[in-house]
Amino acid sequence: MDFTDDQLMRYSRHILLPEVGGKGQARIAQAKVFIVGAGGLGCPVGYYLAAAGVGTIALIDNDTVEMSNLQRQIAHSMQTIGMPKVESAKKTFEALNPDVNVVAIQKRISKDNILDLIRDYDIVVDGSDNFPTRYLVNDACFMARKPLVSGAILRFEGQVTTIVPGEGPCYRCLFEEPPPPGLVPSCQEAGVLGVLPGVIGGLQATEVLKLVLGKGEVLKGELLIYNALKTSFRKVKVPKNPFCALCGESPTITELTDYEQGYCSM
């Protein structure tokens, strides 16, 4: 890849790293990342990946920007209240880095569109805020054999894991089924520290870049749990479940399902 003078300056701190270099930066420029959700997690993930020079970043979200989002959803602003979140984030990311092609998809993701939507992308990032989407994204990524960087946040605690199809457990190996609606409080009901998605989204963006570069070790078969009140990071080993309904030896889930609504959809 021939870098322009602007690109040499913009990416100089990457190019200096032995693990990245010009070749690694070229891989980042060619990468195509699909982000589910343009909220607390999707904003910092997309922001850092745009800064890093990821060539194509798709964002899917059906919501519009509200005042209550601005405490944590850093790609949005007073100027974009009322605008679709994906358009607001696209404006922010493109203002940061014109090298990046941001694909804004203002839709609700479903079993009928997800496989078509993620087909052309290398890596999927889950920044969704509800269980039906989390399981749908996990199942679709397993079927389409796409690496998935999953993140979740609530109150003061967040978690991250990286799922590489065929190379370790899937999300259903960790948690077999979505909890019944109403059992787990949503961010809307329980609150969330505004900076928490910045930490978790930053970790997700790091996982994405390591997958793109093929360097380091990703959180494969491990769940990283961050507690902001205690300032503690805990890594839990997660074995592959041989009886997993999706990725086990005798799978019973062979097609995508849209779970019942009734979950948080903030």
């Binding site: 870098f3 040499l8 100089s12 701190r13 190019i15 200096l16 270099g21 010009g22 070749k23």
Partner: peptide
Amino acid sequence: PYTFVKAKLAME
């Protein structure tokens, strides 16, 4: 750092 950035890219 552009001196080393250019040299490193040439080397790569």
